[in-house]
Amino acid sequence: MINYIWAFIIIASILYSFVTGNYKIINNEILISSKTCIDLILKLFPMIALWNGIVTIANKSGLLNKFALLISPILSKLFKNIPKESNAIGYIASNIAVNMFGLGSAATPLGLKAMKELQKYNKNKDEASDEMITFLVLNTIGITLIPTTVISLRLSNGSSDASCIVLTSILSTFISAIFGLLLDYHFRKKRK
């Protein structure tokens, strides 16, 4: 799907610029996009590396695991049909914990393991189970404690209070989580 969207955006924009006659701007834009990209990467780079370093300490000291244990009782309530002995809840909890601290690279493998585990309890193997969808909703909501990428972009764009958006982000995530889970619950009920 991303292939089509990417191609569509480029084709439509270039055609549009021919129609309106400002293709010169597009010409420049294509030529300088690699420079724009380098600038952007340079803005993000230091913070990604720094935060990854800090969170790796939290990971190695077992802090993230502790945190995962803390949230797993709540998760057990959301995933009632998954047996206690399964590793699924553990993987889901770790995935969310790691995501909260912004260690995206470690979150994905855990998420994939969780999906694999959930697939074991799925009756229809090519159709998503209720639990999988709930997990995906939790995941796409993007529960993040510190949005490091955003903070570094704000810093490099001259913000005087770059981390002021931490609280608003957490609250807005929380609200969307509630609504997302409610809609998920509604769909589940409707099916039964």
Binding site: I2, L112, K116, L136, G142, T144, P147, V150, I165
Partner: peptide
């Protein structure tokens, strides 16, 4: 900034996670 910080790439995650187990 808040918008970017408070949600994740839904379509990407759905594609990746479901794709990995053949849903």
């Amino acid at each position: 900034s808040t918008m970017q910080g408070s949600t994740d790439t839904t379509i990407y995650i759905i594609t990746l996670y479901f794709g990995s187990i053949g849903i």
